[in-house]
């Protein structure tokens, strides 16, 4: 870990592949990617549909395991961890933001934020306090008792950001966070993401189609057919 801290690398991907088998066919969703992501970076991943962006994000988020290569997160080799440990990594170190917000429809805004604090064992008081604080920071203090169905798309995504930050993660992984939002709201959401990640020293990896969103990233990666275009994988002829 000290080594990782030393050179500021949060992620280190070596020849990472994720191959799906559909019948007799192999689909190389992520194909031999080498990639380092530093702490505090705001990385945008772009690419057409089916290029493997979301799969890469899931590998980074410990939701899925590579079928090849090595993937080190914060000095830990994720490919060697079991499901239980991966769950722990997700609960402690990773925050997810989805295109479709993925709020639990039966829970209020503040309950949705609290949801992410349940696995880390925070007591009710601390959960409430942190939830209120986060909703304030995303500008939704007055909407904390509302169900998702009573919130606008932008508001829902801000609740999702608050939820993603609730476990004080090292990295925020956002999959098309502005995909379902109009451009003005998208700007607001990206602004919030930038602000909070900067304040909290949280690394952000953001998958997006939108150039205007990608432009606000500190680094832009492009993917096609499972490969990173800007950083050709070694050995690729």
């Amino acid at each position: 870990m000290s080594e990782t801290n030393g050179n500021g690398k949060l992620y280190k991907l070596d020849n990472v592949s994720r191959v799906f088998r559909v019948g007799s066919q192999e689909v190389r969703a992520v194909d031999a990617i080498d990639l380092d992501i530093d702490r505090g970076e705001f990385v945008a991943v772009q690419g057409p549909s089916g290029s493997g962006k979301s799969t890469l994000l899931q590998l980074l988020g410990a939701l899925d395991k590579p079928t090849g290569g090595s993937l080190s997160f914060d000095g830990r080799e994720l490919t060697k961890l079991g499901q239980g440990d991966l769950t722990k990594v997700r609960s402690r170190d990773i925050g997810f933001i989805f295109q479709t917000f993925n709020l639990i429809p039966t829970l209020t805004a503040e309950e949705n934020v609290e949801l992410a604090m349940v696995p880390i064992g925070l007591n009710r008081g601390k959960r409430r306090a942190r939830g209120t604080d986060l909703l304030e920071q995303v500008g939704l203090a007055s909407r904390s008792k509302h169900l998702p169905s009573k919130l606008s798309g932008g508001e829902q995504q801000r609740v999702a950001i608050a939820r993603a930050l609730a476990n004080e993660p090292r990295v925020l992984l956002a999959d098309e966070p502005t995909g379902n939002l109009d451009s003005q709201t998208a700007d607001e959401v990206v602004a919030i993401l930038r602000k909070l990640s900067a304040e909290r020293d949280v690394t952000v990896v953001l998958v997006t189609h939108a150039d205007e969103v990608a432009q606000r990233a500190s680094r832009r990666l492009r993917m096609r057919d499972g490969k990173l275009l800007d950083q050709p994988a070694p050995g690729l002829s």
Binding site: G61, L63, Q83, G84, T87, K88, R90, S91, R92, I94, G95, F96, F98, T100, N102, I104, P105, L115, A116, V118, P119, I120, R163, A164, N167
Partner: peptide, 16 residues
């Protein structure tokens, strides 16, 4: 499914 996937993504264990 989405709800369950989300719960798993934000760190809920299988057993939970």
């Amino acid at each position: 499914v989405r709800e369950i996937g989300t719960l798993r993504a934000i760190g809920w264990s299988k057993s939970r």
